[in-house]
Design a protein around this nucleic acid. Sequence first.
DNA 1: TTTTGGAATTAACCTGGGTTTACGCCAATG
DNA 2: CATTGGCGTAAACCCAGGTTAATTCCAAAA
Lengths: 164, 164
Amino acid sequence: MNAGDYLFHQGDVAPNLYLIGQGLAKMFYVTHDGKEFVKSFLPEGSFAGSLVAQLEGRPSPFSAVCLEAVGAEVVPFSALETLFKKSPEARSFGLRFFQELALKKEKREYELLCLPPAQRYRAFIEENPGLAARVKQKDIAHYLGITPIALSRIRRRMKTPGPA
Amino acid sequence: MNAGDYLFHQGDVAPNLYLIGQGLAKMFYVTHDGKEFVKSFLPEGSFAGSLVAQLEGRPSPFSAVCLEAVGAEVVPFSALETLFKKSPEARSFGLRFFQELALKKEKREYELLCLPPAQRYRAFIEENPGLAARVKQKDIAHYLGITPIALSRIRRRMKTPGPA
DNA sequence: TTTTGGAATTAACCTGGGTTTACGCCAATG
DNA sequence: CATTGGCGTAAACCCAGGTTAATTCCAAAA
């Protein structure tokens, strides 16, 4: 899939899970008044998919789109569910997977709740050294929950005013 | 346990999971400069515990304290882990539990990322009809990531200015 | 090569939350 | 009964992000 292609759209039931083998994608919300917010970036080795769509059979509240050419494995979530039913070993993997997912979400929750935008940006750069270069600042801003203009101002402040 | 008692403290390794049978508790972060942020409220039927402390054996980044008198079951996380190892059926429950947890976290992430404070407040009231009466506005404000003063202003705006 | 369009920056203005201080309220304490 | 202390509210001021609009840069398209 090429940059710009969608894995699934906001509103779809999106019953598939995607394992990103190569490339880069993002999952993002678009609010009723047209504002975009990036839920997460999906580099190599990430899973794309909507828990709401898959666990509850409801439309996904966000979309997934490729930012670079992407090679991905498509896994119907129903296949995973039957696998979990049949194989106790698979359940162990599933358990571990969702534990890790919850752990990541808890970290993101912490940053959104406790850190101001400038510190969220610093944290993002430190935790994702490679990503910053591959992603547009516009998308980083939307990942932080601010406008590209605000991010531009934060970057300017971080340059010279060094004194803390 | 009585109101004011701690289930565990920020910095503890906190290897236990608590099932709240009765009462109400909260989990909350305190930043280096003394600001408080409420991670979540724990009414009857909730689980209290730190994923970071339990899955990675590291100190919990937040505390858990009772807001009302609490009756709770204490479950050492290690006991759960061995149970998961031995019993494939228990794994099913664990899998489902962490799926639900990830789902909740995803919703919280959405609200913190996409909604402005006033809308976060409206959403909190609607989703937790009973809680608002049991919890101090101070704690609600910290749950929303704002100051009690800001919440007071939001509430005032929501009264008369009705016209949308 | 020229043109087009998106990305990033900047400035100006507005708005809403943070901060400080003060006040009224009420329950717990003496 | 008086006092204390936390909570909610309020006013005043400051500041950072949102908004709009203009500018520059650059790469893709014609």
